[in-house]
Design a protein around this nucleic acid. Structure first.
Lengths: 199, 199
DNA sequence: AGCGTAATAACCAAACTTGACTAAGCGAGG
DNA sequence: CCTCGCTTAGTCAAGTTTGGTTATTACGCT
């Protein structure tokens, strides 16, 4: 729950403010927060006593907006949560890795092409990231550590691009997927050649 | 839904088999599948007509186990899903990045220490991964592409380790988090020195 | 032979996410 | 001056994930 952190940072805020801030960070991408989750999170945090509603304003006949602030308990909880993320290593699960584990189900040439394509997609992302890193807006108006986050992303991306190329070549080279000393005896066959869908 | 892929691979299977296979791959780690999700997924896939129950056996008075197989429609759907994952780039969201964005809320020395610690945790993971890569079991009994997945993991890990060290040094060096030309005027203060919890 | 512990096979309620939807004010263009 | 569309603020139902629980049988130890 990093919503708590945001609220803490912007002290008295209402839901829509949080939503806009997250959107402006395009945080729906790198955090796990879609607009719909925000209000639920705010209510839950309030129930747990980590947030406290401060006031309910109403402009005209629009929906009333509730403003929240963080309680001391919430402050403490946030420090705990933050530390948990900083000190523990929990890797996110990458859907591509799951898909890659089904490599033998893909024709070799398609697999290689897809990997090359993936490399290019990543490269494109890197370009646009670099561009926005060089832009004035980020350089002069955003905290420096935002740039550091980009660097992390960039380092990972470069590692992955190299991997894509490397593996694409290996796949094209036609090495068998099966371990040495094990003939094609189990599971679906190696779809090297134009075999139809196995069934 | 990569459950479908597994079922397709092991053809007629019942839920518990899938569960064991996933567990043996420690797939709860790199895929997005906890044991509890399996039965729900199987039922959902059946409702959608992608799977078909084949038989319901019962040994003694234990819970009946239902065996499934893949329908042609399921076959097709799997191919579609698989391609979607291979050709599209969708990056998982890393909770650490979210936490890192709150860097100014951490005392500098703790942040640096945590980063170094993170580097070491990753290094430890790399070691154990390398060890199991060199083991006979993986080298001779697992398809080659399992090793390739390890390589990807390894490349990412190395990139991240380097980043951790680099950033830890920068943090220790005491550079300001705020962009040039902007004094400490907004949000929580820079907790460089021994200030207590701001409140 | 008896008893405790582990394995087998599955279920379920609660929590969490998601993305579409409502409904009013504000501004700009015709 | 009117109306079309965008912004504001938040709701809601439907779908998913989680991880703890149940109930029976096999196994090992004394």
């Amino acid at each position: 729950m990093m919503i708590l952190g945001l609220v803490r940072w912007m002290q008295p805020v209402h839901g829509y403010d949080v939503r806009r801030e997250l959107l402006s960070w395009s945080a729906d991408k790198w955090a796990n927060v879609q607009p719909g989750s925000i209000y639920h999170a705010l209510r839950k945090l309030t129930d747990e006593g980590l947030l406290r509603p401060v006031s309910v304003e109403q402009v005209g006949a629009r929906p009333a907006r509730t403003t929240y602030e963080v309680t001391p308990k919430g402050d403490e909880e946030f420090e705990t949560l933050l530390r948990a993320q900083w000190w523990q290593l929990n890797e996110p699960t990458d859907p591509f890795v799951a898909a890659f584990s089904f490599l033998p189900a893909m024709p070799r040439d398609e697999a290689a092409a897809a990997l090359r394509n993936r490399g290019n997609l990543i490269r494109a992302g890197v370009e646009s990231m670099r561009a926005s890193l060089d832009s004035d807006w980020v350089r002069n108006r955003k905290p420096v550590h935002v740039g550091w986050m980009f660097e992390l992303w960039l380092a990972r991306a470069e590692a992955e691009m190299a991997w894509c190329e490397r593996i694409a070549e290996r796949i094209e080279s036609g090495v068998s997927y099966l371990p040495a000393g094990m003939d094609r005896a189990e599971g679906w066959s190696d779809r090297t050649d134009g075999a139809g869908q196995p069934e």
